[in-house]
Amino acid sequence: MCADIDYLAQSECIRRHHQLFGNGGKRHLDLACGTGPHVRHFIDNGYQSQGLDINQPMLDIAKLHCPEAEFSLQDMCDFKVDEKLDLITCFLYSIHYSDGIEKLKQCIASAHQALNMGGVFCFNVVEKSMIVNNSFAQYQLEHENSQFTFSSGWDYCGEGERQSLKVSIEKTTDLISQSWQDEHPMVAVSFAELKQLLAPYFEVHMFEHDYEKILAWDGHSGNAIFTCVKI
Rank of each mutant, 00 (worst) to 15 (best):
M1V: 12
C2P: 09
C2M: 14
I5A: 06
D6T: 08
Q10Y: 08
S11R: 02
H18Q: 10
L31D: 04
C33P: 03
G34N: 00
T35Y: 05
P37K: 06
H38L: 06
H38R: 02
H41A: 10
N45Q: 13
Y47Q: 01
D53N: 07
D53I: 03
I54V: 14
N55D: 14
Q56I: 11
Q56N: 12
P57N: 05
A62G: 05
K63H: 11
L64V: 13
E68G: 07
A69Y: 05
F71L: 04
M76I: 00
M76P: 06
D78I: 07
K84T: 09
L87R: 06
Y97V: 06
D99S: 13
I101W: 02
E102N: 12
K103R: 14
K103Y: 02
L104R: 08
K105W: 06
Q106W: 07
C107H: 03
S110M: 00
Q113E: 14
Q113V: 07
L115F: 03
M117L: 13
V120L: 10
V120Q: 02
V120A: 01
F123D: 00
F123C: 08
N124M: 08
V126I: 12
E127G: 04
M130A: 11
M130F: 09
I131T: 03
N134C: 05
S135G: 04
A137L: 15
A137G: 14
Q140K: 11
E142C: 10
N145W: 10
F148C: 05
S151W: 12
S152C: 12
Y156K: 04
C157V: 14
G160P: 01
E161K: 01
K166S: 00
I169D: 03
D182H: 09
P185G: 10
F191G: 01
L194Y: 01
L198D: 00
L198T: 00
P200G: 08
Y201A: 04
F202C: 06
H205L: 07
H205R: 12
M206H: 02
F207I: 04
D210W: 03
K213R: 14
I214M: 06
W217D: 08
H220N: 14
H220V: 15
N223I: 08
F226M: 11
